[in-house]
Write a protein that binds this DNA or RNA. Structure first.
Length: 112
DNA sequence: CACCTGACATAAT
DNA sequence: AATTATGCCAGGT
């Protein structure tokens, strides 16, 4: 189902683009950056459309520091790809899908 | 316009 | 510590 991003989504993507490679943020942090108190809405925005690496949605993980989801799935090959992508950027996860280097986690989304 | 869904978070059991 | 319930927020039907 193709549709263009809504204003809210665009806002989220914009904030997301401020996350440098090799770093990750939680849905909550990202939500805080866009003034949204619900990570669920953020997750929705991610899940909707622009998944693929065009927007670094793979740099967003739940507060549990697990892999979370990717490309509309919470488990599967997509997630494996996400893990590899992040590993390539310097963010390593263990087999349980848990973030190893918490130093890669941004406490806040930097401004431009 | 009302109800349901969802890649979340937090509190309570 | 694990599971369940409640709160959040925007999108879809």
């Amino acid at each position: 189902m193709d549709r263009e991003p809504t204003v809210f989504e665009s806002r989220v993507y914009e904030a997301l683009c401020r996350v440098p490679a090799g770093k990750v943020v939680t849905y909550k942090t990202l939500g805080h950056a866009v003034g949204c108190a619900s990570g669920q809405a953020i997750g929705n925005a991610m899940r909707r459309n622009p998944f693929a690496p065009e927007v670094p949605c793979h740099r967003v993980i739940p507060a549990t520091l697990m892999l979370g989801g990717f490309m509309g799935d919470v488990i599967g090959e997509k997630i494996e790809r996400k893990r590899k992508l992040l590993a390539k950027e310097g963010v390593k996860f263990d087999e349980a899908g848990k973030l190893l280097d918490e130093g890669c986690l941004l406490a806040d989304v930097p401004l431009d």
